[in-house]
Design a protein around this nucleic acid. Structure first.
Lengths: 358, 358
DNA sequence: CTGTTAGCGCGTTCAT
DNA sequence: ATGAACGCGCTAACAG
C-alpha cells in the first residue's frame, strides 16, 4: 500500500529553496568537487535530514546507468572458510562504504544464464565470485558477454582472471618445512582434492615429499574423492560415509602397522576432526602424532590443543577483491583484465605439532 | 563500457511496425486481457525473440512501483536444515515463476536498519525471513514502517505473524509416543534450546514425560546452552568445546550408572553425531540404545543405521510461505496480516529405534 | 556557484 | 485494437 509518499529530490529542493540539480549535486558530491557553497550545502543537508530523504534507486539507476551495488555470489555459503570469507567481504565493504549484496545460488543444476538472470545482471555493477561454483565457466562467459566486471575470489585452479587467490604452493612449503624441520619423515595427507584449492595442495604435497626424497606410502593418502561441498564443516555431505570423515581417517591412519608421525590436513575442519577422533582413542596430539591444519580459521586458536595451521589472509583477500572490482567498475579502460593477485599465506605454529621423538 | 546498447521497447516497436504502447501491452498482458489481435501479438513476440529484448528493471520499477522480486533473507545459511529450506524455497519459486534473491546478512551486529537498507527496501516487493535472525524484531518494525509485506518462516516462538511454522508439540508427541509405545521409560534429551524451535521441543519433552509420569533425571538432559549457530552441522561453533558435541554427550550419557534406553535428539545432526560417537565405543544403535532425530533431513535416510526422525515438511513450508507472501503483495487489503500457518510434522520410523529389551 | 532543460525506458491515460 | 503523449525521479549538459 505504501500510502506515505516517499520524499523526492524536488521536495528537498523546495524546502531548501534551491533547484533539484543543486540537491543532486550535494548528494553526489565527489571528493574533489567543491562546487557548492557551504551555506547552500548545509541548507540542503538539513532539509534532507529533516524530511528523511532517501534516494530512489530506480530513478538513479535509470539515469546514471549504474546501481552502486555489487553482488557477491557463492554457491553454498556453508563451511568455516566460506563463512569467514563472507564476513570479511561484508566488513571490508562496510568500511569502504560500498553497498554489497551477498547472494547464494544454492543450485547445482540451474543454468548460468538463470543465475545471472537478467535481473541480477542489471542489478549489480559488478560481481564477486566467491569460491567454486557449479557453472563457473558459463557464468564467466555470460558476464563477459554482458561486459560486467567481475573478480574471481578463491576460485581454484581453473579460475579465470581477474582473480584473487593465495599461493597454495607457498603455503604447503611453509607447512611441510615446519614438519620436516621438526624431524618428521612419515607424513600423511588428508583432504578431498575436489574442493577448491585442495587439489593444488595435494599436488604440492606430493611434489615436496618427492623432492625431499621422503617416501609416501599410498596408505598415508586420505584423499576422499568427490565430496559434495562444505568441506570444513563435516556437514552437508550427501553420503553417509562422509560424515565425520576426518575423525575416522585419523584413527585408521594411526592403526596402520607403520603409522605416520604427522598428519597434514588440507583443511582446519579436518584437522580438528582428526584431533578429536584421535583423542577418543587416547592418542595424544602432539605427543603421539603432530597435526597441521590449513586456512587459519579463528577457531583453531582456541581448540584443544591449539592447531598449527597455514593462515590464508582472508582480510587481505577481501580487501584486494573489492579494490580490484571497484577499479574494474570505475575505470574499465585502464584496468587490467588479466590481473592475478596472489597473496601469501603464513604459518602459525601452535601446539598441535612437535618433534616426532618427544 | 557496455558498448552494445540494450534493445529497448522502442526497437521492438519499430521492428514489428507497431507502437511502443502495443509492445508494452503484449509484454504485460494479464490473463483476462484479450485486447491484442493474435496477428499483432505474434509479430511483436517474434521481434522480441529475434532481437533478444530484456526488460529494463529500473524503468519498469520506476513506473510500476514494484520490482517483481522477492527477497529471502537469512542470517547464516549454514546447517543441514537451513540449507535444505533454502533449496526448497528456490525450487518452489522457480516452479511458480517468481523471481527470488537469496540474501545472507551474516551479521550479528549490523543494525536492522542497515540490513533492510534503503536499497533492499526498494529492491524487494516482499521479504521471506528465514529462520531466526539477530535483529528480528527491529527488522519487523522496519518492515511494518515501510509497509513491506513479509512472512516469517520457521522463526521460532517469538516470531510475529504472518508466519509459517510447524507444530513442534505435535512433532514431539509423535516422537515420544513412538518411543513409549516401544516400551521406553528412560529417555534422554539432547539439543540446544537457544536454537530456533528447540526451546519448544524441550518444553514439550518435559511436559510429555511429566504427564506420563516418566521420571527425568537431570543427568538425562543434555541442553547445551548458547551455541553460536549452525546447530546441525557440527561446525561454525565459536567455542572449541562445542565441536562434535553430539558424539561426546551421547558417550557420556551411556556411561551413566543408569543409562537411558533411548536418546531424543532435537536435531538430525545431533542424532547422527550421537550414533557415530556411540559406535566408537562399540555401543550399537538400536540394539543397545534407541536414537531419534528431528527435522527429517534427507541424509538421515541413508545413515547407518537409517535414523528414525520427525520430518518437518519443508516443501510445504516453502510453498505456503511463498503463497502467503504473494497474497500479501498482490492484495494487501484483503490479505490477513495475522495469518499463522502451522504445518504438521510426521514421524518416519526407520532403523535407529527398537524395543529396549531386544 | 547555481538554475533550466532534456531525456533515461517504461506503463499508462486519452484518444481514435 | 492500436497510437500519441505524458511523467515516474533523477542526473548531465548547458547556461548564466
Amino acid at each position: 500500500m505504501t500510502d506515505k509518499k516517499r520524499v523526492r529530490i524536488a521536495d528537498i529542493a523546495e524546502a531548501a529553496g534551491v533547484s533539484t540539480a543543486t540537491v543532486s549535486r550535494v548528494i553526489n558530491e565527489k571528493d574533489g568537487d567543491i562546487r557548492i557553497s557551504d551555506e547552500t550545502r548545509n541548507r540542503v543537508l538539513e532539509a534532507i535530514d529533516r524530511l528523511g530523504y532517501e534516494r530512489n534507486l530506480f530513478s538513479f539507476a535509470l539515469r546514471a546507468e549504474k546501481t552502486g551495488i555489487i553482488g557477491a555470489v557463492n554457491r553454498n555459503p556453508s563451511g568455516l572458510f566460506m563463512s569467514n570469507l563472507a564476513h570479511e567481504i561484508l566488513r571490508e565493504a562496510h568500511e569502504r562504504d560500498v553497498e554489497i549484496l551477498m547472494a547464494a545460488t544454492y543450485s547445482e543444476e540451474t543454468s548460468a544464464k538463470a543465475q545471472i538472470s537478467m535481473l541480477q545482471g542489471q542489478l549489480f555493477d559488478g560481481f564477486l565470485l566467491l569460491g567454486d561454483m557449479p557453472n563457473y565457466h558459463k557464468m564467466i562467459e555470460q558476464l563477459r558477454k554482458l561486459d560486467k566486471p567481475y573478480v574471481s575470489v578463491f576460485g581454484g585452479t581453473s579460475a579465470l582472471p581477474p582473480l584473487v587467490h593465495v599461493d597454495e604452493r607457498k603455503g604447503m612449503k611453509l607447512a611441510l618445512d615446519h614438519l620436516t624441520e621438526l624431524g618428521h619423515h612419515k607424513i600423511a595427507f588428508m583432504g578431498s582434492p575436489s574442493w577448491v584449492g585442495i587439489g593444488e595442495r595435494l599436488e604440492a604435497f606430493e611434489k615436496y615429499l618427492h623432492r625431499k626424497g621422503i617416501p609416501l606410502p599410498s596408505s598415508y593418502m586420505c584423499t576422499m574423492g568427490d565430496l559434495a561441498y562444505a568441506p570444513e564443516s563435516g556437514q552437508s555431505f550427501t553420503k553417509p560415509s562422509e560424515h565425520l570423515l576426518g575423525a575416522k581417517h585419523a584413527q585408521e591412519l594411526m592403526q596402520l602397522p607403520d603409522p605416520p608421525t604427522a598428519i597434514f590436513c588440507a583443511t582446519d575442519g579436518f584437522a580438528m576432526q582428526a584431533i578429536y577422533g584421535l583423542s577418543m582413542l587416547g592418542i595424544s596430539v602432539p605427543h603421539d602424532v603432530s597435526v597441521v591444519g590449513y586456512d587459519g580459521v579463528p577457531m583453531t586458536a582456541y581448540y584443544n590443543p591449539p592447531v598449527t595451521t597455514v593462515q590464508t589472509p582472508i582480510d587481505q583477500i577481501a580487501a584486494e577483491a573489492i579494490r580490484l572490482l571497484l577499479e574494474l567498475i570505475d575505470s574499465p579502460d585502464t584496468a587490467n583484465m588479466n590481473n592475478r593477485v596472489i597473496l601469501e599465506p603464513k604459518l602459525i605454529v601452535r601446539k598441535s605439532t612437535a618433534r616426532p621423538d618427544c
